[in-house]
Protein backbone atom coordinates (compact mmCIF):
# COMPACT_ATOMS: atom_id res chain seq x y z
CA UNK A 1 0.00 0.00 0.00
CA UNK A 2 1.70 3.15 -1.18
CA UNK A 3 1.40 6.65 0.18
CA UNK A 4 -0.76 7.66 -2.74
CA UNK A 5 -3.34 4.97 -2.00
CA UNK A 6 -3.60 6.03 1.64
CA UNK A 7 -4.03 9.64 0.51
CA UNK A 8 -6.90 8.78 -1.82
CA UNK A 9 -8.64 6.54 0.71
CA UNK A 10 -8.44 9.21 3.43
CA UNK A 11 -9.76 11.87 1.04
CA UNK A 12 -12.62 9.59 0.01
CA UNK A 13 -13.48 8.91 3.64
CA UNK A 14 -13.66 12.64 4.43
CA UNK A 15 -15.78 13.37 1.35
CA UNK A 16 -18.21 10.56 2.20
CA UNK A 17 -18.46 11.81 5.79
CA UNK A 18 -19.28 15.27 4.44
CA UNK A 19 -21.95 13.75 2.20
CA UNK A 20 -23.46 11.98 5.22
CA UNK A 21 -23.89 15.29 7.05
CA UNK A 22 -25.33 16.93 3.92
CA UNK A 23 -27.84 14.08 3.77
CA UNK A 24 -28.89 14.48 7.39
CA UNK A 25 -29.26 18.23 6.86
CA UNK A 26 -31.57 17.61 3.90
CA UNK A 27 -33.59 14.96 5.73
CA UNK A 28 -33.92 17.32 8.69
CA UNK A 29 -35.19 20.04 6.39
CA UNK A 30 -37.84 17.61 5.16
CA UNK A 31 -38.88 16.02 8.45
CA UNK A 32 -38.82 18.71 11.14
CA UNK A 33 -42.20 20.26 11.91
CA UNK A 34 -41.56 24.02 11.94
CA UNK A 35 -38.99 26.36 10.51
CA UNK A 36 -37.05 26.95 13.75
CA UNK A 37 -36.28 23.22 13.87
CA UNK A 38 -35.43 23.18 10.17
CA UNK A 39 -32.87 25.90 10.83
CA UNK A 40 -31.17 23.47 13.24
CA UNK A 41 -30.71 21.00 10.42
CA UNK A 42 -29.49 23.39 7.72
CA UNK A 43 -27.34 25.66 9.89
CA UNK A 44 -25.28 22.87 11.40
CA UNK A 45 -25.26 20.07 8.86
CA UNK A 46 -24.17 22.19 5.93
CA UNK A 47 -21.35 23.85 7.87
CA UNK A 48 -19.74 20.62 9.02
CA UNK A 49 -20.41 18.94 5.67
CA UNK A 50 -18.59 21.72 3.86
CA UNK A 51 -15.66 21.58 6.27
CA UNK A 52 -15.26 17.81 5.91
CA UNK A 53 -15.54 17.85 2.11
CA UNK A 54 -13.00 20.68 1.82
CA UNK A 55 -10.59 18.75 4.05
CA UNK A 56 -11.08 15.76 1.76
CA UNK A 57 -10.34 17.87 -1.34
CA UNK A 58 -7.23 19.30 0.32
CA UNK A 59 -5.90 15.83 1.13
CA UNK A 60 -6.63 14.65 -2.42
CA UNK A 61 -4.94 17.67 -3.98
CA UNK A 62 -1.80 17.62 -1.79
CA UNK A 63 -0.48 20.67 0.01
CA UNK A 64 0.44 23.74 -2.02
CA UNK A 65 -0.78 27.30 -2.43
CA UNK A 66 -4.22 26.16 -3.63
CA UNK A 67 -4.89 24.61 -0.21
CA UNK A 68 -4.88 28.07 1.37
CA UNK A 69 -7.60 29.07 -1.07
CA UNK A 70 -9.57 25.99 -0.08
CA UNK A 71 -9.31 27.05 3.57
CA UNK A 72 -10.91 30.42 2.74
CA UNK A 73 -14.29 28.79 2.00
CA UNK A 74 -14.87 27.06 5.39
CA UNK A 75 -13.30 30.06 7.13
CA UNK A 76 -15.89 32.30 5.53
CA UNK A 77 -18.71 29.82 6.02
CA UNK A 78 -18.00 29.45 9.74
CA UNK A 79 -18.72 33.15 10.12
CA UNK A 80 -21.51 33.35 7.53
CA UNK A 81 -23.62 30.31 8.36
CA UNK A 82 -24.42 31.23 12.00
CA UNK A 83 -25.08 34.78 10.88
CA UNK A 84 -27.59 33.61 8.29
CA UNK A 85 -29.24 31.20 10.75
CA UNK A 86 -29.46 33.87 13.41
CA UNK A 87 -30.85 36.46 11.04
CA UNK A 88 -33.58 34.15 9.70
CA UNK A 89 -34.44 33.12 13.25
CA UNK A 90 -34.63 36.72 14.41
CA UNK A 91 -36.86 37.52 11.44
CA UNK A 92 -39.16 34.74 12.66
CA UNK A 93 -39.23 36.16 16.20
CA UNK A 94 -39.87 39.67 14.91
CA UNK A 95 -42.76 38.46 12.75
CA UNK A 96 -44.26 36.58 15.76
CA UNK A 97 -44.05 33.10 14.26
CA UNK A 98 -45.22 30.71 16.94
CA UNK A 99 -42.75 27.86 17.57
CA UNK A 100 -44.06 24.34 17.25
CA UNK A 101 -44.73 22.69 20.63
CA UNK A 102 -44.83 18.99 21.32
CA UNK A 103 -48.40 17.85 21.94
CA UNK A 104 -49.30 15.43 24.69
CA UNK A 105 -51.39 13.05 22.63
CA UNK A 106 -49.84 10.90 19.92
CA UNK A 107 -50.04 11.70 16.24
CA UNK A 108 -47.57 14.59 16.11
CA UNK A 109 -45.23 12.93 13.65
CA UNK A 110 -46.72 14.28 10.48
CA UNK A 111 -44.49 16.90 8.90
CA UNK A 112 -46.75 18.75 6.50
Amino acid sequence: MTFHTIQIITAGFFILAGLFFFTTATLGLLRFPDFYCRLHATGKGDTLGTLLMIVGFMIYEGFHLLSLKFILIPLFLFMASPTVTHSIGRAGVTCDVEPWEKKEQSGTEETE
Binding site: F22, F35, D46, T50, M53, L77, I88, C95, V97, E112
Partner: peptide
Protein backbone atom coordinates in the same frame (compact mmCIF):
# COMPACT_ATOMS: atom_id res chain seq x y z
CA UNK B 1 -36.00 22.47 -3.89
CA UNK B 2 -39.19 20.72 -2.79
CA UNK B 3 -39.01 22.65 0.48
CA UNK B 4 -38.14 25.83 -1.39
CA UNK B 5 -41.22 25.57 -3.61
CA UNK B 6 -43.88 23.96 -1.38
CA UNK B 7 -42.50 25.19 1.95
CA UNK B 8 -45.36 26.07 4.30
CA UNK B 9 -44.01 29.52 5.14
CA UNK B 10 -41.67 31.94 3.48
CA UNK B 11 -38.84 31.72 6.03
CA UNK B 12 -38.54 27.99 5.33
CA UNK B 13 -38.05 28.86 1.69
CA UNK B 14 -35.22 31.27 2.55
CA UNK B 15 -33.50 28.61 4.68
CA UNK B 16 -33.87 26.03 1.89
CA UNK B 17 -32.39 28.42 -0.69
CA UNK B 18 -29.45 29.05 1.63
CA UNK B 19 -28.87 25.29 1.93
CA UNK B 20 -28.98 24.99 -1.87
CA UNK B 21 -26.31 27.70 -2.11
CA UNK B 22 -23.94 25.78 0.16
CA UNK B 23 -24.34 22.60 -1.87
CA UNK B 24 -23.80 24.51 -5.12
CA UNK B 25 -20.42 25.71 -3.87
CA UNK B 26 -19.42 22.08 -3.34
Amino acid sequence: LYRAIYGPDILTRIAAINAIGTKTVM
